[in-house]
């Protein structure tokens, strides 16, 4: 049991490499924005360590600069992070009901776009240790990058940052393409979501919708349509669930 969870942790660390690189590319800019808003290096690091979200941090810094009241900050954070509710619900179904409260509390910190994507598309049930590995790899990149950005005031050279940014997309593709290849309904979901999201960005009136909401709307509409048209009834975790 001990060795098995250690293995999952190491696997998480290994799969966390692209997360680490991708976060490093973005977090320098967070550090610069934080010092721009008047935060110190340590404060910037603590903010990134505890929040672990790019949109949430960037928009909070904007409010901080305008010295907006705290309740406004709370409402804004809730709105920009609303997609995490959906992700957290999906992740709850991926954990065995036997998993206790403490692991759930820890896994919850890892509900970011990237760590959610990797965790929830694991084969079989999700081992919390795997997500811990991803969180450690991601946090080193995210918090470390924020502090370096805050300390140096420099972004990464554009060409390197751009290519690292592509690492996140590559990683996303690595988790959804095999699913889409093996299942017709999943392929349709992926294609429809991609088309709908593109339509949202191109059509004049719809393009006013913020990115966070665009993702929520597309996800809810496409998943609900797929659930009605092609219900997925199989057992989520065949034999693996009874392994230990």
């Amino acid at each position: 049991m001990k060795t098995s969870s250690e293995n999952y942790f190491v696997k998480g660390l290994r799969d966390g490499v692209p997360v680490f690189l991708g976060y490093l590319a973005v977090s320098f800019a967070v550090g610069i924005a934080a010092t721009g808003a008047g935060f110190g290096i340590l404060q910037s690091g603590v903010m990134s360590l505890l929040n672990f979200t790019s949109t949430g941090e960037f928009s909070a810094l904007e409010l901080y600069k305008q010295s907006a009241p705290l309740y406004e900050l709370a409402i804004l954070e809730f709105i920009v992070n609303m997609r995490y509710i959906l992700m957290s619900c999906a992740m709850s179904q991926k954990l065995s009901p036997r998993i206790g409260t403490l692991p759930r509390l820890l896994v919850a910190h890892g509900v970011t776009d990237e760590i959610f994507g990797l965790s929830v598309l694991q084969k079989g049930e999700l081992r919390p240790a795997y997500t811990y590995g991803l969180i450690v790899a991601g946090e080193i990149g995210w918090t470390g990058g924020t502090m370096i950005g805050a300390a140096t005031g420099r972004v990464m050279p554009a060409m390197i940052a751009a290519c690292l940014g592509l690492a996140i997309y590559g990683m996303f593709l690595a988790v959804i393409v095999p699913g889409a290849r093996d299942s017709r309904p999943v392929l349709c979901v992926v294609l429809c979501a991609a088309l709908m999201c593109t339509a949202f960005k191109v059509i004049p009136f719809l393009s006013a919708v913020s990115e966070g909401f665009r993702i929520i709307i597309v996800t809810v509409v496409i998943s609900a349509a797929a659930a009605v048209l092609v219900p997925h009834v199989e057992d989520d975790f065949p034999e693996e669930a009874r392994e230990d």
């Binding site: 997609r83 959906l86 992700m87 619900c89 999906a90 179904q93 776009d113 959610f116 994507g117 929830v120 598309l121 751009a162 290519c163 940014g165 592509l166 997309y169 996303f172 593709l173 988790v175 959804i176 699913g179 889409a180 309904p185 999943v186 979901v189 992926v190 294609l191 429809c192 979501a193 991609a194 088309l195 709908m196 999201c197 593109t198 960005k201 665009r214 993702i215 597309v218 996800t219 496409i222 998943s223 609900a224 797929a226 659930a227 009605v228 092609v230 219900p231 997925h232 009834v233 989520d236």
Partner: peptide, 26 residues
Amino acid sequence: FIRSFLYYVPFAALAAMIFPSVFTAT
């Protein structure tokens, strides 16, 4: 219904996060 919905959520959400922004990522 909810089980099927949550099963499709990660695929739809990730696809929505990838496209179309991936084409301008660099």
